[in-house]
């Protein structure tokens, strides 16, 4: 029998793997964006699990909004990546230090 805790542990595991991915793939900004997509997926799964088990549709409406905003975010992120690659001919994040942050 699959309980709510199974789903919650699964999405926690997915979230932790994608956090590790952000640390490991510091050189490649595309893989960084993909890790962020994975984190959003884990969060959405959490929302749907709670929505299912508490019999409330609000969680699924929220997932809908998150999907729309994430699509907009990845579109703008990819546009920035394309124009960055056109200027600098590389995607290494440690070379992007114009602001000296």
């Amino acid at each position: 029998m699959i309980t709510m805790s199974h789903y919650l542990v699964f999405s926690a595991l997915l979230f932790c793997i994608s956090v590790a991915g952000i640390f490991i793939n510091r050189k490649n900004i595309l893989l960084l964006l993909m890790s962020i997509e994975l984190m959003l997926l884990a969060v959405n799964t959490n929302f749907i699990v709670f929505s299912h088990y508490s019999n409330d549709i609000t969680g699924q409406v929220f997932v809908f909004f998150i999907l729309a905003v994430a699509a907009a975010e990845s579109a703008i992120g990819l546009a920035i990546i394309v124009s960055l690659f056109r200027i600098r001919n590389s995607l290494e994040i440690n070379l992007i230090n114009n602001l000296k942050g």
Binding site: F10, L13, I17, G21, N25, L31, L38
Partner: peptide, 14 residues
């Protein structure tokens, strides 16, 4: 899902 996300993180091939 877990195995493929682990290989996504480790493989470093876009």
């Amino acid at each position: 899902i877990i195995l493929s996300s682990m290989s996504l993180v480790i493989l470093n091939n876009t």
